[in-house]
Design a protein around this nucleic acid. Structure first.
Length: 490
RNA sequence: GGCAACAUGGCCGAGUGGCUAGGCAGAGGUCUGCAAAACCUCGUACACCGGUUCGAAUCCGGUUGUUGCCUCCA
């Protein structure tokens, strides 16, 4: 580990050298999905971002325990049916068991994540499997005087907490501002202070998802599961906590407060937050009708999409922007990304054909250092990608004989390039649909006929075959190695 | 309304107080029967108005716009 990695810590608002508590071990917790619907484009960002973080830490030689939760209880609908759980609501609508709904969408989420080539977390705890741990934590918070029971529910006492600690340190919010913000919300009458949040919520009679507790039959509050499950599997404090920027307040702010209230210390050393996704410059939201599911993106089945975009195109596109910048999805941008990715992967294959020389005219190690510099600077994947394209250019010059590499340097260059593309960025060739034997046979015959015509300089026939195939979205290319064909997709 | 962040060439998107980002598109060229693909060469952009500075797109202030959070949210 000759390179120092710098991370932007939301808590300090600056880049800090990453020094794990117990190297080479690293504990990382990332906020996962609430499984009540299909994953959409917005979900791809944290998934790919923290997959890149995970992959790079592994590449640097760290032993990473990666925990990503699945939220299957606890989130409240904000406007209707006060106190009804999102999962329970969906279950009633679809006449399914709540757990059935959660399982269904969890399976689909996993499939999408697999398509995006994200590595599975080492532990993927579900909130409903940790009710006992959450109750125990609530009891500790109550005992420490930072919570109160109100009508069967338990609330975190933000004012009591802020007497001794800084509620708002992560998000930059002030208690005074929270006070002035006098929005009317339902269920507020049980709270002593508007900013107080539920640790345990009493279930209404029709509420399906419920567990017994010392206070009522109910369910755990919004923010508790991450504090509890992070502490359980990673210990306190752990090195990295990741998630979307929209979770900074109130979710992560409240997590910190809960951990301090329960355990006496903060549970996270470095907070990493990915920025949000927009679509054609607009916020993406279900209410705006522009939250495109990943399945729809992959199939192109959405009015806003001109064509399908493959999982690797999405992955490459996401990595082409820095994770802390907003990222705007548009057809133009995705098409550009698809083409760039194709060229990068084809170039990677072409590296294999390079021939070494007796000396090197370019400095491979300097090039490689720039790749590491990019990633070490708070995971600057766009700069790494630019560097890879520069490497590609270098490879082309070597292929043309303009530049040379020694046997040793060439081998190092190939290995390094491949490692950055596949291991660190997690990019790979997408398996094409293999043509059937029938299609292959037909194409072979057709191209032989065309070759025969070309041999006789019968350009009219040769061009007709190519033109007709083009209408079937088949591209025929006469290369030096012979004629090849490919299906035109995106 | 309150609190933040951002505003870069046709599009996407890095970075930086003076020194090439990169991708896509576009132009020219090599190759080719033609085409496609591939490769080579090419762009001096940084919202607006002030200020600091020898010098700012990069720092400071203001304006406008966009986005996020303040309510489940990746």
């Amino acid at each position: 580990m000759q390179h120092t990695l710098f991370l932007y810590n939301t808590l300090s608002r600056r880049k800090e050298a990453f020094l794990p508590q117990n190297p080479p071990f690293v504990g990382m917790y990332v906020c996962g999905p609430t499984v009540y619907g299909d994953a959409h484009l917005g979900h791809s960002r944290p998934a790919i971002t923290f997959d890149m973080v995970y992959r790079y830490l592994l590449h640097l030689g760290y032993r990473v325990r990666y925990v990503r939760n699945i939220t299957d209880v606890g989130h409240l609908e904000h406007d209707l049916d006060e106190g009804e759980d999102k999962i329970a609501k969906k279950a009633r609508l679809e006449q399914l068991e709540p757990m059935e709904v959660a399982q269904f969408y969890m399976n689909r989420y996993h499939r999408n994540m697999d398509q995006l080539n994200t590595l599975p977390p080492g532990i993927e705890p579900v909130a409903s499997g940790h009710i006992i741990d959450q109750i125990a934590t609530i009891e500790r918070i109550l005992k420490n005087g930072f919570a109160y029971v109100s009508n069967g529910s338990v609330y975190f006492d933000v004012l009591a907490y802020s007497q001794h600690h800084d509620y708002g340190k992560l998000s930059g919010r002030r208690i005074d501002d929270l006070l002035t913000d006098t929005r009317e919300l339902e269920g507020q009458e049980e709270k002593h202070f508007p900013a107080d949040f539920a640790l345990w919520k009493k279930a209404s009679p029709e509420h399906i998802m419920r567990w017994p507790s010392p206070w009522s039959d109910g369910f755990p509050g919004w923010h508790l599961e991450c504090s509890v499950m992070g502490a359980k599997y990673l210990g306190i404090p752990f090195d990295i906590h990741g998630g979307g920027m929209d979770l900074i307040f109130p979710h992560h702010e409240s997590e910190i407060a809960q951990s301090v209230a329960a355990y006496g210390s903060e549970h996270v050393r470095v907070w990493l937050h990915n920025n949000m996704v927009t679509l054609n410059g607009q916020k993406m939201g279900k209410s705006l009708g522009n939250a495109i599911s990943l399945d729809d993106v992959f199939t192109g089945n959405h009015p806003l999409l001109d064509q399908p975009y493959s999982p690797m195109t999405i992955r490459f596109f996401v990595l082409q922007a820095h994770y802390r910048s907003t990222l705007d999805f548009s057809n133009d941008a995705l098409q550009a990304a698809g083409k760039g990715l194709k060229r990068l992967l084809a170039g990677m294959d072409a590296l294999e054909k390079l021939k070494p020389s007796d000396h090197s005219s370019v400095n491979v190690h300097e090039w490689e250092d720039k790749c590491y510099e990019a990633m070490n600077d708070d995971f600057n994947s766009p700069v790494l990608i630019a560097q890879l394209f520069d490497g590609l250019h270098m490879a082309n010059l070597i292929g043309a004989g303009t530049e040379t590499l020694s046997v040793e340097d060439l081998s190092h260059f190939k290995k390094s390039f491949l490692t950055f593309v596949t291991d660190v960025l997690g990019l790979k060739h997408e398996e094409q649909d293999q043509p059937s034997d029938l299609v292959s046979g037909l194409m072979e015959t057709l191209l032989q006929l065309r070759e025969r015509a070309r041999g006789k300089k019968d350009w009219e026939t040769a061009d007709m075959i190519r033109k007709e195939l083009a209408r079937l979205k088949i591209n025929v290319k006469d290369t030096k190695e012979g004629t090849v064909w490919e299906k035109i997709s995106d």
